[in-house]
Design a protein around this nucleic acid. Structure first.
Lengths: 232, 232
DNA sequence: CTGTCAATAAAAATCGATATTCTTTCTTTT
DNA sequence: AAAAGAAAGAATATCGATTTTTATTGACAG
């Protein structure tokens, strides 16, 4: 009975309800379905997702440390707020961490790392770019960026890259909601980074990655500020 | 009944059992009482701390995102491992983040920030340095370093500083267990940093902070490697 | 012996219900 | 009519018990 329930759930690719719940709420926060500052009521989420309170609570607790959710003791959880200021800090820190991770990867990465990049790049390209939020593209995009850093061999760096990527994604989606600017084609930039990394040209790869971030960052910052204006 | 129980618990300064549990496990991981790689059994912790499984689980979930605990789905939690490599990455990233936070604080910090530093510095000095693990000194030490960055006004930076401080503390304690080297007196270094920050001399403050970290880092790294050797 | 499989024991994950704490609303008093 | 206070209604936090999953043991066949 319960087994059937589990395997029927959206493909049944999850090891635990907590993992699924975590991913689900995380994605809803990132995509902007759950808006900054919104109250996250346990019971509501519980019902929506179809799990008990414990997994929801665990997921939310993690998300607090991930920076996507905030908590006030005895007053529950809500979606973390956003601001152009926080975005700036995020971009700065993220750049530091990604540069380090990428350099280490290029220095230490083995065949496994190389193959990971090739595969992730291929998969990302295979998806037709869309104006709307596309969960699959998001997943592959995330995978691609993590694959670049996977060779570093540092759990700490990888965890941070992952967290920052998610936070950044949220800004990306939220700013799109507000502005509605057509996202430029990123495929070439991605390919360029991958190419340089695989050629073990650290300086070039880092330069391209930073350009990639700064270019996106500049646009995002502007869009966020417009949203902030609007929110006034 | 339950109220009495709550307020009797170690001073009753906690708003929720989850907070207390989180702090307790965190401190045990940092202090080295819970050793790297050790299994964290829910029921055991539950009994030990005197709370139900839910707060324990929530606390552990947070600690995973904080990098102090790792989780394997369906196989529970264990204390995160350590290595000199991970320590290097931690030190690097931490330096980036703290430099940024300190500069921002010096640039933006108000009277509130200044007073926070003065107070934290005073409290830290007031405690006689000890060779053993001293929870109170730890608390104040933590508070001092966070106070320096508190003026930045960035939740993201503050959260990261806090996380990195904890991870670093763990390495500090673990290496002491192994080596048994007498910790040098840090008070003067702390004072120097605080002085420069309050004088709004960003470059000097940052330089002193970095020296502080690198000096400690060098010693720690060595000690960790000895521990690693021993663990072989 | 050695590897496989089933039965048992242990632990993790999850649920449903209860206790606690906040929020809001509706009095009551000045 | 405004402020303080009490009571009802949410929502959070927590517990104890149940369900699932993993780990261990021991029997048995190869």
């Amino acid at each position: 009975m319960t087994m059937a329930q589990k395997s029927s759930e959206s493909g049944g690719e999850f090891r635990s309800r907590t993992s699924e719940t975590h991913m689900r709420i995380r994605d809803d926060v990132i995509s902007g379905k759950l808006k900054p500052g919104a109250k996250l009521k346990i019971e509501h989420l519980s019902r929506e997702i179809g799990v008990g309170a414990t997994p929801v609570r665990e997921a939310l607790s993690s998300l607090v440390s991930d920076g996507l959710v905030v908590r006030e003791d005895q007053r529950g959880f809500r979606v973390a707020g956003i601001s152009s200021q926080e975005f700036d800090e995020l971009l700065y820190v993220r750049s530091c961490v990604e540069e380090r991770a990428l350099r280490l990867s290029i220095e230490r990465g083995g065949p496994n790392w190389e193959e990971g990049i090739v595969l992730a790049k291929y998969r990302l390209r295979a998806i037709a770019p869309s104006d709307r939020y596309d969960p699959q593209w998001e997943r592959h995009h995330r995978q691609f960026h993590l694959a670049l850093n996977a060779g570093s061999g540092s759990g700490t760096l990888l965890r941070l890259c992952s967290q920052f990527f998610d936070e950044n994604s949220r800004y990306r989606h939220l700013s799109r909601c507000g502005g509605g600017r057509a996202p430029r084609d990123l495929s070439d930039e991605h390919d360029g980074i991958a190419e340089a990394a695989l050629a073990r040209n650290a300086d070039l790869a880092v330069e391209r990655l930073m350009t990639h971030y700064n270019r996106t960052g500049k646009l995002l910052r502007q869009a966020i500020m417009e949203v902030e204006q609007g929110a006034q």
